Simulated assay, not measured.
Amino acid sequence: MDTDALRRDLVVPGGLWTSLDVVTETGSTNTDLAARARNGAPEGAVLVAESQNAGRGRLERRWSAPPRSGLFLSVLLRPADVPIERYGWLPILVGVAAATTVSRVTELETGLKWPNDLQITVGGEERKIGGILTELGGGAVVAGLGINVTLRADELPVPTAGSLALAGAAVTDRQTLLRGLLREFAELYGEWRAAAGDPHASGLLPAYTARCTTLGRPVRVQLPGDRELLGEAVAVDTDGRLVVRTADGSRHPVAAGDVVHVRPERPDPA
Rank of each mutant, 00 (worst) to 15 (best):
W114S: 06
P264T: 13
Q52A: 01
L156W: 10
S69T: 12
Q52Y: 10
D21P: 05
A80S: 14
H261P: 02
W192G: 02
L188E: 06
S69Y: 01
G216Q: 07
L71V: 05
A37R: 14
V82W: 08
E265Y: 06
V221I: 13
T213F: 01
G240S: 02
I120H: 09
R266H: 11
L133K: 06
T26Q: 13
T110H: 05
A98C: 08
L166G: 00
A41M: 11
A170V: 07
W17I: 05
L76Q: 13
A207W: 02
A167V: 02
D32W: 14
K128F: 05
L133M: 09
G190M: 11
D32K: 14
G139Y: 12
A165V: 07
I92D: 03
Q222N: 14
P91W: 14
L93Q: 03
G27W: 08
L181E: 05
R78S: 03
V219F: 04
S69M: 02
G139Q: 11
P218Y: 05
N148Y: 05
L136M: 11
R7P: 01
L118Y: 05
G88D: 04
A270R: 15
L151R: 09
W192Q: 07
A34S: 11
D9Q: 14
I92R: 09
E191L: 13
G168T: 08
R251S: 15
R263T: 04
L223Y: 15
A210D: 10
L93V: 00
A235S: 13
V236E: 01
D81S: 14
